[in-house]
C-alpha cells in the first residue's frame, strides 16, 4: 500500500473546478485511489475518482489529506495526484 499526504492549495478548497480536475485525473488511472482527511481511519477513505465523494469530504484550503493506492505504478500515480492537490487552480 502506497500512501502520500497533500495540503489542499486551492483557495476554494477541494470542490468546484479543483475537485473536477482531481477526480478526472484519479479516474484516468488503472488503480483504485482513496482519499481521506489526515487523522481519519483508512476504512472511512473515499473513492478519489468520485467528485461527489470529494465534495462530501469537505476539504478546505490548507487541510491535509491522505491518498492511498495499491498496485503497480501506485507511487508514481500518487505523486502525480499530490501535485494536482498542491496546485492553486484558481490562480491559473
Amino acid at each position: 500500500m502506497s500512501e502520500r499526504t497533500a495540503t489542499i492549495a486551492s483557495r476554494v478548497g477541494l470542490h468546484a473546478r479543483p475537485a473536477a480536475i482531481f477526480a478526472e485525473a484519479a479516474g484516468d488511472l488503472d488503480l483504485e485511489v482513496t482519499i481521506a482527511k489526515a487523522g481519519e481511519p483508512a476504512d472511512d477513505a473515499m473513492d478519489a475518482s468520485s467528485i461527489l465523494s470529494l465534495m462530501s469530504l469537505g476539504a478546505s484550503f490548507g487541510d491535509v489529506v491522505v491518498l492511498r493506492a495499491e498496485g503497480a505504478g501506485a507511487d508514481e500515480a500518487l505523486d502525480k495526484l499530490v501535485k494536482i492537490l498542491e496546485t492553486d487552480h484558481d490562480a491559473e
Binding site: 468546484a16 473536477a20 477526480a23 479516474g27 467528485i51 461527489l52
Partner: peptide, 16 residues
C-alpha cells in the same frame, strides 16, 4: 462550460 463539465463528471460518478 465549467458547470457542464462538472455535471458530466457527476453523471457517471463511481460512487453514485
Amino acid at each position: 462550460k465549467e458547470v457542464l463539465e462538472a455535471t458530466a463528471l457527476m453523471a457517471a460518478d463511481p460512487m453514485l
